[in-house]
Amino acid sequence: MIVVSAFAKAEIVSLPSLTTTQCAMCRAVLESEEDNSTAKGINNGIKYLMVIPYILVGGVFYFVYKSRKKDKEKTI
């Protein structure tokens, strides 16, 4: 029962409060600059970290597709 009640209380948290959560240090550094160059750098880093796994997985699927297509042509 304790787990269920804790889970129910966790769902009560509103969505806007979840979208603004950051560590205090990051938020202080990003809000203190006037030119937002650090914020742009962090956003670019997030994009970089997000895109690389998709490229790697896409490359693996491409080579698997290519090898299966080649094997299918050999059998015909």
Results as ranks from 00 to 15, higher is better:
residue 1 M to H: 11
residue 2 I to L: 15
residue 2 I to H: 13
residue 2 I to N: 14
residue 2 I to D: 15
residue 3 V to F: 13
residue 5 S to R: 12
residue 5 S to A: 12
residue 6 A to I: 08
residue 6 A to T: 07
residue 7 F to T: 14
residue 8 A to G: 11
residue 8 A to H: 08
residue 8 A to I: 10
residue 9 K to A: 15
residue 9 K to N: 14
residue 9 K to M: 12
residue 11 E to P: 07
residue 11 E to M: 15
residue 12 I to N: 12
residue 12 I to K: 15
residue 13 V to R: 11
residue 13 V to F: 10
residue 15 L to Q: 10
residue 15 L to Y: 10
residue 16 P to H: 03
residue 17 S to F: 13
residue 17 S to Q: 13
residue 17 S to D: 14
residue 17 S to A: 13
residue 18 L to P: 04
residue 18 L to D: 08
residue 20 T to L: 12
residue 20 T to M: 12
residue 21 T to W: 13
residue 21 T to D: 12
residue 22 Q to P: 02
residue 22 Q to K: 12
residue 22 Q to N: 12
residue 23 C to M: 09
residue 23 C to P: 08
residue 23 C to L: 11
residue 25 M to P: 05
residue 26 C to N: 02
residue 29 V to Y: 01
residue 29 V to H: 00
residue 30 L to I: 00
residue 30 L to Y: 05
residue 31 E to H: 06
residue 31 E to F: 00
residue 31 E to M: 08
residue 32 S to E: 05
residue 32 S to H: 01
residue 32 S to M: 02
residue 33 E to A: 03
residue 34 E to C: 00
residue 35 D to V: 01
residue 35 D to M: 03
residue 36 N to P: 00
residue 39 A to M: 03
residue 39 A to K: 02
residue 39 A to L: 10
residue 39 A to H: 02
residue 43 N to Q: 11
residue 43 N to R: 11
residue 43 N to C: 05
residue 44 N to S: 10
residue 44 N to G: 09
residue 44 N to L: 11
residue 45 G to E: 01
residue 45 G to Y: 02
residue 46 I to G: 01
residue 46 I to E: 00
residue 46 I to K: 00
residue 46 I to C: 07
residue 47 K to S: 12
residue 47 K to V: 10
residue 48 Y to E: 05
residue 50 M to P: 00
residue 50 M to K: 11
residue 52 I to W: 00
residue 52 I to F: 06
residue 52 I to Q: 05
residue 53 P to I: 03
residue 54 Y to F: 15
residue 54 Y to S: 07
residue 55 I to H: 03
residue 57 V to A: 02
residue 57 V to K: 05
residue 58 G to R: 01
residue 60 V to W: 04
residue 62 Y to G: 04
residue 62 Y to E: 06
residue 62 Y to W: 02
residue 63 F to D: 05
residue 64 V to C: 07
residue 64 V to E: 03
residue 66 K to D: 12
residue 67 S to M: 01
residue 67 S to K: 05
residue 68 R to D: 13
residue 69 K to T: 09
residue 69 K to V: 07
residue 71 D to I: 09
residue 71 D to K: 13
residue 71 D to G: 06
residue 73 E to P: 03
residue 74 K to T: 06
residue 75 T to G: 04
residue 75 T to S: 12
residue 75 T to L: 14
residue 76 I to W: 11
residue 76 I to Y: 11
residue 76 I to T: 12
residue 76 I to G: 12
residue 76 I to K: 15
